[in-house]
Amino acid sequence: MSKPQPHIIQEGSKQYSLGELKGSELIYDFDKMLVYLNAKGKLLFGETFKTFEEDRDILFKLCNYFIGDEANCKKFGIDVKKGILLSGPVGCGKTSLMKLLRHIVPHQKPYKIIPARNIVFGFNHVGYKTLEDYGNGHYFCFDDLGVEPIGRHYGKDCNVMGEIILSRHDLFLEYHIKTHATTNLNAQELEKRYGNRVRSRMRELFNLIAFDKGSGDKRK
């Protein structure tokens, strides 16, 4: 039985190589990864999808994080043990990249991408069980963190995502379970939204990778 080759990805009848094996070491090739990401992006999001040259640095950081290249990540101040908090203006492509990048590491446990507002709507409907559902051992990426409404169940208000982040922080410390998120907010806005205690936990939970403030809306 042949060994699995994590750098060879089959999409339909086409095969993509993301690098090459040199002895027992896998050497990834960033340009080959971009070729695959563009092809996979078209399959996921339609023929108009493309990666942008202006996002090359962000993509390079994210690719190195996902493949676990500790040497390159160290240069960028990225801790491969933590999750990713991908921030940037509305429409810059945060959600699409988080949906896309998990496909370059098919051998790793995938994470589910859940809009934060949907979690709050779930809390409003079923209550505190929602906090348990997302404070467990599954892998999640919380999308659009910080713009969700305050939760309310039977007249009681709850900062739902703040509570979930505290639970995810405990999971990270005890079981090394990662959490990812995307946000349009900056550090000060996140602290205002969730408070200093949650913001402090977020620093331990996430690597912050940020798009340039001037990144345009790619959905236009």
Rank of each mutant, 00 (worst) to 15 (best):
N186P: 04
I119K: 05
P149F: 07
A181Y: 01
E53V: 10
I113A: 11
M202S: 05
D31N: 06
Y16V: 07
N207T: 03
A116I: 02
F172P: 04
I104K: 09
V80C: 13
K213A: 11
G93C: 01
Y194I: 03
S215N: 11
F172W: 14
E148Q: 14
I67F: 04
T179I: 03
Y134V: 03
G23Y: 05
A39P: 01
I177S: 11
D29C: 06
Q10M: 09
M98F: 13
P115F: 11
G127F: 05
V105Q: 11
I84L: 05
L131E: 03
K213C: 00
I67H: 03
L26N: 06
L21T: 12
D57C: 09
P110R: 10
G195L: 07
L101G: 02
E204M: 14
K220I: 14
I177N: 09
L62P: 04
C63F: 14
K42Y: 09
G46A: 10
Y65L: 00
K50H: 15
Q15D: 06
L173P: 00
D170S: 11
D143V: 02
E54I: 03
M98G: 12
D217W: 13
S2W: 08
F206E: 00
K40C: 11
G77S: 14
R152I: 09
L173G: 03
S24Y: 01
K40L: 14
C73W: 08
F121N: 09
R193E: 11
K50M: 13
G162N: 06
H153G: 00
G19H: 05
G46M: 10
R197A: 14
P6V: 05
D133P: 07
P149N: 06
E148N: 12
K220V: 14
I150T: 13
F121H: 12
V160I: 06
K74W: 10
V120S: 05
S24F: 06
K192G: 05
V198H: 07
V147F: 05
G41M: 06
D133N: 15
E204Y: 12
